[in-house]
Every structure is written in structure tokens, then in C-alpha cells.
Nucleic acid binder design. Structure first.
Lengths: 182, 182
DNA sequence: AAATCCATGTAAACGGTTACATGATTTG
DNA sequence: CAAATCATGTAACCGTTTACATGGATTT
């Protein structure tokens, strides 16, 4: 899946591993995340598969960087993925619910404290999505010369998902915390 | 995390690997999932760590099964996990949003078809949560002798999360599909 | 007679995280 | 002068998936 995401980014324009990490971990945090080390390793594999090529590029202010470019085969692989239909649900894992599931044996107060702690974290996440993310996305859209209605629409749709998710999580916390108090 | 889940199940009562798989993949699908092979391997590791012990148990109708029991160390490990506070957000990955993110270069019709397909899958998932899951959970609560208010409360809370999640996803699909039509 | 359920496991591969290692440049 | 940012990479490990292998009992 990371491979697909990197293919997608390079389809816009050549980028270095570091730049792709910046991109994924700022503009896409609401639905994906990757370690730099994983990105470098994946790019190396993709190069050996002929999906990308790389060359070192000198820079004035910073050290040289290795810039990756999609090959024809890479572009084809991306298009194939993009044009295939996915017919199954993603399985999703929600670690914190595993803990909630076993809260029956924790004291009510302890449970309430942990729930409040999580609620605060999600509130902060929602604030971040609402305040900082729209600008970050706009910046990236400009930087990649993708500032047309269609690209903006789908990027914003994913962010809208993040916002709706966090809003829903907060509603859930409020509901069960209220019920727990009784 | 699977380790923690298995510890939690065995804390209720001794179970075989097969039974734990049944449990996780019917009662807990909305927040966790594990392959049988992974469960068997994990149990083996847990046994070598002294968290569980196992013995073969003969059965009348079916072949013998290996039943696992929590050791004192296992119970202690579970309690420690249960009583610790988690102070960071789970990172969550939503593979289908990776695809949506790159929909800018897919035709609108193709995008609409794929979105409709996903919407249907989520609708079915929601129906399942509403129709079959409550009974499944009630059965399991009885089977494990946990049919008290507190356990039921937290189990139902996780299911409530699943329902609210799917409802939110459907709202999201409806919103963006409506906007896409214009 | 075929399919499904019960039941246990091993092996290989994959995807991802954590730790380690290095070092220049810019900002406070 | 210290900290943060830019920048690249390797190695070990861990958790998970997929494929393989087996076989009795029950249901259709």
C-alpha cells in the first residue's frame, strides 16, 4: 500500500524520499503514515523492480538529495491500480477498542480517567484537522501544480473524512462517559 | 496487541486457539481480526514466555483440542496492561482513502462507480452490526458467564462504535457522491 | 458424495517499526 | 553554542498474511 502511495506521489512529479515523507506525514496523516526508513527501503525495492529511477541532485543550501522519477512501467502500474475496482472492505483495527472491550474488570474511575485522556487526544486531533490541515493541503496543491477543482475535491474529501471521524469519536466518548457516570 | 487480546480472553476462562479465533472473528470483527495461524503461533510464544499453559483435552464429538489457561504471570501481565494509561493516539490507516486521494486522475464515472461499490459494502457491514452482532455478543456473554451490567456495557460500547463508524462512513459517501454529481 | 465445520499446526514471505549511524546547514 | 531541520541509509526485529499440510465428524 505504501508502494501505491509513493507511485501516486511520483506520478505528480519527481521527489526525494525525504520529501515524500514530509508529504505523507503532514498532508496525509489522517489516513496514512510511514517511517522514513521504510520509505527509503521501499523506494530501493521499487527501483530494483524498474518502477522508478533515481539520480543524485546537488542543492545549494543543503546536501545533495536522491530524486526519484516514475518510469513508464511505474506509471503503468499506478494506472492499473487506479483503474481496478476494489470489491472488499478494508479490515480495520482499532487498538483502543481492544482495551475498552476488557474494561469490565477495571474500576469505573480508572476507566473514566482513561476515556477522558483519549477524548482529549482526539479533540486535539480534530482541532488540528480543522485549523492547520486545510492550509497545509492548499500549500501542497500549489507546490505540485495541482490546484484545479478535481484534485482539490478528492484531497478535501479525505480530510473531510478525517474530520467526520474525529467528530464521531468525540460523540461516542461523550455518550459512553455520560452513561458511565450513572 | 493480539497477545493482549488473547490474555484478555483467557482471563475469562480457558479456551482453545480455535475457540479464540471464533470469538475474535465473530464478536470482535468491528475492531480486531486475526488469522488462525497467527493465533496458534502467538499462543506458542506466550507459552514459552510462561504467560499460559496448555493441555490436550479429549472431546466426544470432535478431535481433541489444546486448551490454554492463564498462569499467574499471565494474569499479572494482563492486569498490568489493563491498569496502565495509554497516552498516545492510535495511528490509523485507511487504505481506501489512499485510493480516493489519487482519484483526481480517474474519470468521474469510474470514481462514482467505485464509490458506490464501497458504499454498498459499508451498508452491508452496518446491517450486519445492527442485525446479527447484538445476538452474537449476548450469546458469548452468557457462554463466558459475564452477563452482568458492567461487562455488557463495555462490549456494547465497542459495538456502538462500530455502528457509529459505519453510519459516519455512509454519510461521508452520500455527501461526496452528491457533490460529485454536480 | 460433497461441502462444511472442527481442529492443529509449519514455513515463507511481507510490511512495518525501532534502533543505529552519519553529517551538513540553518535557526534561536 | 545548542537545537532543529535537511538528508540518506542499514540491520534487527516484530507482527501479520498467505500458502501448505492433515484429517475426522457432521450436515446437505
Amino acid at each position: 500500500m505504501l508502494k501505491y502511495a509513493l507511485l501516486g506521489l511520483l506520478h505528480y512529479q519527481p521527489l526525494s524520499g525525504y520529501e515524500m515523507e514530509q508529504f505523507i506525514n503532514t498532508t496525509n496523516t489522517h489516513f496514512w503514515h510511514a517511517q522514513l526508513s521504510q520509505i527509503y527501503r521501499t523506494l530501493k525495492i521499487m527501483e530494483s523492480e524498474g518502477l522508478v529511477t533515481s539520480r543524485m541532485e546537488a542543492q545549494e543550501q543543503a546536501r545533495s538529495k536522491r530524486v526519484y522519477t516514475l518510469t513508464e512501467a511505474g506509471e503503468a502500474a499506478f494506472q492499473e491500480e487506479l483503474n481496478s475496482y476494489q470489491t472488499e472492505l478494508d479490515i480495520n483495527k482499532v487498538p483502543f477498542l481492544v482495551r475498552v472491550f476488557f474494561f469490565g474488570d477495571v474500576g469505573r474511575e480508572r476507566a473514566a480517567t482513561q476515556l477522558q485522556l483519549w477524548r482529549d487526544l482526539h479533540q486535539r486531533q480534530l482541532d488540528h484537522y480543522r485549523e492547520a490541515m486545510p492550509d497545509r493541503m492548499a500549500e501542497q496543491l500549489e507546490r505540485l501544480n495541482l490546484d484545479d477543482e478535481t484534485h482539490r475535491f478528492f484531497w478535501e474529501a479525505t480530510l473531510r473524512f478525517g474530520v467526520m471521524y474525529e467528530e464521531m469519536v468525540l460523540r461516542w466518548f461523550d455518550e459512553i462517559m455520560r452513561e458511565l457516570e450513572r
